[in-house]
């Protein structure tokens, strides 16, 4: 059966890249002695699928991966065993069994919510708190997206689902599907540009708050956290 595992990643662990986090979990799973299924073939590997890579430098309260289990006592047992293997900065937040008809974690990702904070001395010199609402209310937010081969103009607006001030930070919910993924930095760049500025390098501390699936339709999306998805 397939199990979805939600974890958080904070502190110094933000410097560990996606591939190394996968290796970290493979080893943690071996140490935890949970009965994960392996692929067949010459070099068997654990059957595991991560929802969405988290960029180096970002923290998260809403990361997910799925594993295929041969057998299990309970979700609580898996959570306890894995949690016991975590290093400081990593926590296993939730484990649940997936309904059979739910697609894998990666294919399910539709949106992600981020909290963006300014590093010390990196707060913008324009009145960002009052400008935020008007920026979000714009009809379209055009940016130039650099690809390897060319530049193309892109409207971010349809992919921004929420953007608001929360205490001293900005909360941003954006499209995170494989087709339309928007990086929070891209939105922030546009916000600065709108105010005639350019963000300094390393200005933001970004935390992914949650990763969502779409339980509604394309036209009328209904976003639910990846571990609340129903079959």
């Amino acid at each position: 059966m397939k199990v979805r595992i939600k974890f958080s990643k904070h502190g110094v662990m933000k410097f560990i890249g996606h591939l190394d986090i996968m290796r970290y979990f493979q080893k943690a799973i071996r140490r935890s002695d949970i009965d994960i299924a392996y692929s067949t073939g010459y070099s068997p590997h654990q059957i595991m699928s991560f929802a969405m890579p988290l960029g180096v430098g970002l923290e998260s309260d809403g990361e997910y991966f799925d594993v295929e289990m041969n057998s299990m006592v309970s979700c609580e047992d898996i959570q306890e065993r894995l949690e016991a293997q975590m290093v400081p900065g990593m926590h296993i937040l939730h484990v649940r069994v997936l309904p059979d008809n739910v697609g894998n974690a990666m294919a399910s990702v539709a949106a992600a919510r981020y909290r963006i904070q300014f590093r010390d001395n990196c707060e913008p010199c324009f009145d960002w708190k009052s400008q935020l609402a008007s920026f979000y209310q714009k009809e379209s937010i055009l940016v130039i997206k650099q690809t390897k081969k060319s530049e193309k103009e892109l409207d971010l607006k349809p992919g921004i689902y929420e953007m608001y001030l929360d205490n001293e930070s900005i909360v941003l919910m954006v499209d995170a599907s494989s087709a339309g993924n928007i990086k929070p930095g891209l939105v922030m760049d546009a916000f600065y540009k709108e105010n005639g500025q350019e963000p300094p390098e390393f200005a933001f501390e970004i935390t992914r708050m949650e990763t969502y699936a779409n339980a509604g339709t394309t036209e009328e999306p209904y976003f639910v956290p990846l571990d609340e998805i129903e079959g």
Binding site: H10, V12, F15, G17, D20, V56, Q85, V87, P88, F202
Partner: peptide, 26 residues
């Protein structure tokens, strides 16, 4: 969370910051 000798800015600029942060299992 433990402190680091290097700032985020440095760690994000260099190759393989994981070389310098410690915190490994065991």
């Amino acid at each position: 969370m433990s402190k680091l000798a290097l700032s985020d800015e440095i760690l994000l600029k260099i190759e393989k910051p994981a070389r310098y942060i410690g915190n490994e299992v065991n």
